[in-house]
Design a protein around this nucleic acid. Structure first.
Lengths: 151, 151
DNA sequence: CCGTATCCAAGGGGATACTG
DNA sequence: CAGTATCCCCTTGGATACGG
């Protein structure tokens, strides 16, 4: 159990990590980058590749990425229109961290889903026994009034 | 320019990568894990640390993480209540990929913001010249009717 | 083909008040 | 302290129709 008076330095809204996460912490951005990391693609190809995304959301996501310099958009003045999207050099720097997330998913997602299924069925997961043991131990051994202190 | 008939294999909604990204691709989840990677924390500490999150969203996020076995929640039966959250062993496996994203943010976020500011002010970013060159080149040298082919 | 424009339903998420 | 409950706004985002 944690003792009192632990100093916690806040994560300000304007720190670089938060600003960075805001860039990519939505439903589609990372998927679009994953799609483009295979190389230049037309709009319709990306749209076909990312199952479930609407044209509206794809456009929106691509526009944001373009605006931020992560994706390059090239329009060829032909009929019918031909538009190609690709990662910029800057955008390619995101491939590595995203790959780390992919690796994690490949390794652990099914374990996560197993635990979730168990939780949904039983109302608890296997961690609960561990936790109960912790709480019991404390209930027996220690004073039950915690009396948290102010700073 | 990309040539015709490029094969694109779709990313199905149920692939592991997408299921993994759905876990963490929202506004708060990653920040909560970042907060907890420093060690066990009380609810109020996390809440204070993540500037801007409401109690409602923090609870919601923590519940989801708990349900998925990434976060452990321990309630001590004392008054006033004392609840501690920490990453499980499984949850800790996420630290590494998240760290990669943090590193990326530290390195590149300000470049991104520079480009974005430029884009917002001028309606274009520095890539546009590069793109114009590309398009011009094509317009001069090649047939202007692209005539995309079917498969 | 690659968008834009408009409408609209669902729900995300804040504010507030209340409880054990 | 650590939630739960309710209200309600307002954004998100899908569906559809249309345009260059």
């Amino acid at each position: 159990m944690v003792t009192k008076k632990q100093r916690v330095e806040p994560i300000p809204t304007d720190c670089r990590t938060r600003r960075g996460l805001e860039l990519i912490a939505d439903r589609w951005t990372l998927l679009v980058i994953v799609a483009l990391q295979q190389g230049t693609k037309r709009f319709s190809q990306i749209h076909a590749q990312i199952e479930g995304i609407s044209k509206k959301m794809l456009i929106q996501t691509l526009r944001a990425l373009e605006r931020d310099g992560l994706v390059k958009r090239v329009v060829y003045p032909v009929v019918p229109p031909l538009v190609e999207y690709s990662l910029t050099t800057l955008g390619q720097t995101l491939i590595e961290p995203i790959w780390a997330l992919r690796d994690w998913s490949e390794k652990y997602i099914e374990e996560v889903e197993r635990i979730r299924a168990e939780y949904d069925q039983t109302g608890k997961n296997s961690l609960q026994e561990e936790i109960l043991a912790l709480v019991q131990k404390r209930a027996n051994g220690a004073d039950s009034s915690a009396e948290p202190e102010k700073e």
